[in-house]
Amino acid sequence: MTVQTVNETVVLHLPADGAPIGSGQDALDLVGEAWASGAELVAVPASRLTPAFFDLRSGHAGEFVQKLVNYRMRLAVLGDISAYVAASEALGAFVAESNRGAHVWFLDGPEDLAGRLAMVV
C-alpha cells in the first residue's frame, strides 16, 4: 500500500496485486489501514474486488461501502468495470448514482481520481 497526497487529499492506494477483497471485514481492515496512515480516501483497483462485489444481489458492495461510509472514509474504485456494468442494469445505476456523490466513485484510473479530487478542493 502506498499513501499519496492528491490535490490536498491523502489517499491510500492499494496495489493491483494481492488477495481479493469485498467483504465488510475487508472494509473495516481498510479503514484501520487508512486511519493508521492518515488517509481520507481509499483507492482500490477494481481487479482486487471479488466478482460478488459487483453482483448487487450478493449484498457485498452494499456492506463494503456502508462500512467505509460509516467511518467517514471515502472510496474510489479504479479500473475498468464495463463488463460488470454491461451485465447489470442495477450496477450501472449504482455506479452512476455513486459518481454523483462525494463518498464513493468508480473511475477509470488515478488520473481520473486526481481530476475528481481537484474539483472537490
Results as ranks from 00 to 15, higher is better:
residue 3 V to A: 07
residue 7 N to M: 06
residue 7 N to A: 14
residue 8 E to G: 00
residue 14 L to F: 04
residue 15 P to Q: 09
residue 22 G to D: 09
residue 22 G to Y: 07
residue 25 Q to S: 11
residue 25 Q to G: 04
residue 26 D to P: 03
residue 27 A to R: 06
residue 28 L to D: 13
residue 28 L to G: 07
residue 29 D to T: 09
residue 31 V to P: 03
residue 32 G to I: 06
residue 32 G to L: 11
residue 34 A to Q: 11
residue 34 A to H: 12
residue 34 A to M: 10
residue 36 A to M: 11
residue 36 A to G: 12
residue 37 S to P: 00
residue 42 V to P: 10
residue 43 A to H: 10
residue 43 A to P: 07
residue 43 A to R: 12
residue 46 A to K: 11
residue 47 S to Q: 13
residue 48 R to E: 06
residue 48 R to C: 00
residue 48 R to S: 03
residue 51 P to K: 13
residue 55 D to N: 14
residue 56 L to H: 11
residue 62 G to D: 08
residue 63 E to H: 08
residue 63 E to C: 03
residue 63 E to W: 01
residue 64 F to P: 08
residue 64 F to G: 06
residue 65 V to S: 02
residue 67 K to R: 15
residue 67 K to N: 07
residue 70 N to L: 11
residue 75 L to G: 05
residue 77 V to I: 15
residue 79 G to F: 05
residue 80 D to Y: 05
residue 82 S to Y: 02
residue 84 Y to E: 14
residue 86 A to V: 01
residue 88 S to R: 12
residue 89 E to W: 01
residue 89 E to S: 10
residue 91 L to R: 08
residue 91 L to F: 09
residue 93 A to M: 10
residue 96 A to G: 04
residue 98 S to V: 00
residue 100 R to E: 13
residue 100 R to D: 08
residue 101 G to C: 02
residue 102 A to I: 03
residue 105 W to L: 06
residue 106 F to R: 05
residue 107 L to Y: 06
residue 108 D to S: 12
residue 108 D to R: 15
residue 109 G to I: 04
residue 112 D to I: 00
residue 113 L to G: 09
residue 114 A to N: 09
residue 114 A to T: 06
residue 115 G to I: 02
residue 115 G to R: 15
residue 116 R to P: 00
residue 117 L to F: 05
residue 117 L to T: 09
residue 117 L to N: 10
residue 118 A to C: 00
residue 119 M to R: 15
residue 120 V to A: 07
residue 120 V to W: 09
residue 121 V to C: 08
residue 121 V to L: 11
